[in-house]
């Protein structure tokens, strides 16, 4: 899942990028409201993590910008002002969750997964499909009870497909989900990952829809 982190403290921003990357997210990191607006204009994010005090405005401005466009992207607020009335103001402004600084990185990752899951209407944390079980929290996958060893990108492609079983996901969407701004994407990167996934899962799980992208194959196909 690709997420946007808006935080002006360089050390924290760097830590969030690295930490959430380790947790399996693709992270875009910006430090100002202006950059956040630009990023939100051009990309669709699974979740936005937002600091409230920014150099050129408040995180609530970014939140308002999102909600005004009827964009339901889940938003987790990060702030030092964690008094009750601050939380209430943030949540009422349309935030999905709220975390006071300093926070636990694992808790933040769990909350991001939770708001994203709720956003897509699922209740459980794990993804199930034809005996394949994905656990985004531990970044583990298994097939018929046997553990699969997947790379971060492979896991990302599989979970993106499994979040919407039966839907065709374009190569561009997959690339966008897997790679942040700073990362170079080789033109056949997605094909390579799909190939590797097929060799680990076995054929007949991921179907190529020519010209459109990929989707999960039905059992009898």
């Amino acid at each position: 899942m690709r997420i946007l982190v808006v935080e002006d403290d360089p050390v924290l921003l760097d830590g969030l990028s690295a930490g959430l990357g380790l947790a399996g997210f693709t992270v875009d990191a910006v430090a100002t409201c202006e950059d956040a607006f630009a990023a939100l204009e051009t990309h669709k994010y699974g979740t936005v993590i937002l600091d409230l005090m920014l150099p050129d405005g408040s995180g609530l401005d970014v939140l308002g910008f999102l909600r005004q466009r009827r964009d339901a992207t889940p938003v987790v607020l990060l702030t030092a002002r964690d008094q009750v009335h601050d939380r209430i103001a943030g949540l009422d402004a349309g935030a999905d969750d709220y975390l006071g600084k300093p926070f636990d990185l694992d808790e933040l990752a769990a909350r991001v997964r939770a708001v994203a899951r709720r956003g897509s209407g699922r209740a459980t944390g794990t993804l199930h499909w034809r005996g394949v079980v994905l656990d985004p929290a531990s970044q583990t996958a298994s097939l018929g009870g046997k553990l699969l060893t997947l790379t971060r990108r492979e896991f990302g492609i599989l979970s993106t497909l499994m979040e919407r079983p039966g839907m065709t996901v374009s190569k561009a969407t997959l690339e966008e989900t897997l790679y942040g701004w700073q990362e170079e994407v080789e033109s056949n990167a997605v094909e390579v990952h799909i190939h590797n996934l097929r060799s680990k899962l076995g054929t007949g799980y991921i179907k190529t829809v020519r010209g459109l992208g990929y989707r999960l194959a039905e059992e009898n196909s």
Binding site: D9, P10, V11, L12, L13, D14, G15, L16, A18, G19, L22, D51, L78, A80, G100, K101, P102, F103, D104, L105, D106
Partner: peptide, 14 residues
């Protein structure tokens, strides 16, 4: 004060 602390903790956890 809390922001740099959050940064320190996050980096430590990373």
């Amino acid at each position: 004060l809390k922001t740099p602390l959050a940064g320190l903790k996050t980096q430590a956890q990373v």
